[in-house]
Write a protein that binds this DNA or RNA. Structure first.
Lengths: 338, 338
DNA sequence: TAATTATACTAACACGTGTTAGTAACGGAG
DNA sequence: CTCCGTTACTAACACGTGTTAGTATAATTA
């Protein structure tokens, strides 16, 4: 059983045909005529020898690796706190395997050395999907301009590189609309991060759009900034509650920040949602287990991975994309906090 | 710039030597004499042409893929709830890249079709690391017996396949020891799952060992079963609190289950840890943000991935492992719930 | 019947590398 | 001067596949 694996040559010999014919049959090459008899002969011989084409030979011959590189440019700590990356990854893998592609994982700690270029130079992958803080990256831009298939997760300002992202602006709007529809009249906001980050600005924009659409005034004093931590949410919520005219509902643009905000509310003996409603953003795994279970906006993590993979494959196959970017819709998850 | 990539032949021609010499120089083949002059010539030519060896050619020639397959046999839902898998993955990637290996991710939904055998048959990977519920898997056993490098994450009963796992028994013991050292005298337990699962039995064993070592009696009525959900923890804790002689501390063998247990305690107006202490297990990302922050046992997720990768590579390189399994130590994370 | 065309294949090259066996050139020992 | 060993290389094969150009044979047409 530990004998050498059968090659297409062995199959050819057993079937009494040429290696070329074997290749034609097994790859179902279109536009080639093979008699049904020999076709069956070949298939039977392949089955009998337990033949599986050697991927290395295939790659060398075709010049394609049928492999997508997923480049994670994040510190190990960031990765640990990213509850969605795994789903993204599974989505990517599913899109890839559906088209006969495989996924190569590459984790990179720091940007400068551009370790991922090795994947490309050495022909490891046919295309890459890039995840990470998208600052200016000359190598990415150069690769893209050379026609190498690249898909970003998230948007990179001032470039034409294809991307896939969640429509967070619309998601934030949905969240605030939900509060409006529940009859809350004074709606505050705590951001997920500083406005230096595009993702924080987008969520703020959605908040403002929803208020405008509902003919509410936008009160800048009701907007506080968080910084990804529960502690920041705790503090921000306290300043909101200290205000003379405190809100009756708050859109917290991050579940993690919302955890702190909820603690601040409860510490004052106020009830959620009776005294003040809270809606989060992200739908982290424990959001449903908070006290009370947190209404929030679910990000299409799996879908982002899937779409990124699908687009990368389209680029690899030489197809045109109908648009530079894709924005996937979020989902409102209603629980008990609103 | 979009011209063909340089091959070793181009380098040879520019350097005025044979392709063989180029290979010898660039691969630093031991036991081969190359004059310093030509060595520098070759290196300079390679640099000048921006030469990178084509991995496909390498693979075909060497018969090795320098690739480790990470096989995830879990439903998408399970993957979503697994907060550690990503860390495991990053650990594996790090161990792999340290030795010049790459990681191929393969997600499989159901066991029967054994999709992962394709990875092996087609020479995609030199070895696999397997993660998932380890029921009997004849294919895994056969592959191992044929000498194919396999490392399991978690233990598979009645096999000699190498594995890497967390020492959960010791971890549970550590958790209970911590409660003992804090002076709690009546220590209950809520399991993470049914005793049908080895992981639940191991945690129970650790609990019992710690009590024995402290000369505490083991009171079976203080042990309740959870089933991975907060709801089960809520119910189990309620039955513990209803008992005539209720515990003053509880070891909950899963943070997720502990979330429910904490809710039950708080709902009765009891305080944590003053009235009843709770220690969890797993250290999920939000454990530190619960109210109060949960003391728990951290699993060495990154280390498991790293060790699995390292051992897989050792197997691939033909080295012997000093032992079938490796058990990595957990870490006590003290917060405010004890 | 002769010429064309469709059918069913095969010979041969290409992909880019690793590696074994072999060979000139040269210096030193006998 | 001859023999031998060392140094510094190279020729040639192997890896297993995809694919183009070409060739017999049989079927159809003029």
């Amino acid at each position: 059983m530990s004998a050498k694996r059968a090659t297409s040559f062995d199959v050819a010999r057993l079937a009494g045909v040429s290696r070329t014919t074997v290749s034609f049959v097994l790859n179902k090459v279109p536009g080639i005529q093979i008699s049904e008899a020999t076709r069956r002969n070949v298939l039977e011989a392949a089955r009998q020898l337990n033949y599986h084409p050697n991927e290395s030979g295939r790659r060398l011959s075709s010049g394609k690796s049928r492999m997508i590189g997923l480049v994670l440019l994040q510190s190990a700590e960031q990765v640990f706190n990213d509850a969605f990356l795994l789903q993204v990854l599974v989505g990517l893998e599913e899109a890839a395997s559906r088209s006969g592609f495989h996924v190569l994982l590459k984790h990179i700690k720091e940007s400068p050395p551009y370790e991922y270029s090795q994947l490309i130079n050495e022909n490891h992958v046919d295309g890459i999907v890039f995840s990470g803080p998208l600052q200016e990256d000359p190598l990415l831009i150069e690769l893209h301009s050379r026609g190498f298939p690249i898909v970003l997760m998230g948007q990179m300002p001032d470039t034409v590189i294809p991307y896939v992202d969640a429509n967070v602006t619309l998601g934030a709007e949905t969240a605030v609309n939900h509060l409006v529809s529940r009859g809350y009249s004074r709606i505050g906001m705590i951001t997920n991060a500083s406005f230096r980050y595009a993702t924080a600005r987008q969520r703020r924009d959605g908040y403002c759009q929803a208020l405008k659409a509902a003919n509410y005034d936008i009160d800048e004093t009701l907007i506080r900034q968080g910084d990804y931590t529960p502690a920041s949410g705790f503090e921000a919520m306290n300043t909101l509650l200290d205000a003379p005219d405190r809100p009756d509902a708050v859109f917290v643009a991050s579940d993690v920040v919302a955890i702190g905000a909820m603690q601040a509310v409860k510490q004052r003996g106020l009830r959620i949602p009776q005294d003040i409603a809270i809606i989060g953003f992200d739908d982290i795994p424990t959001a449903g287990h908070l006290d009370p279970p947190l209404t929030t906006i679910r990000l299409p993590a799996f879908g982002i991975g899937w779409a990124a993979g699908e687009r990368a494959i389209r680029l690899i196959l030489g197809e045109e994309l109908e648009a530079q970017g894709v924005l996937l819709d979020t989902e409102l998850v209603i629980r008990q906090s609103t």
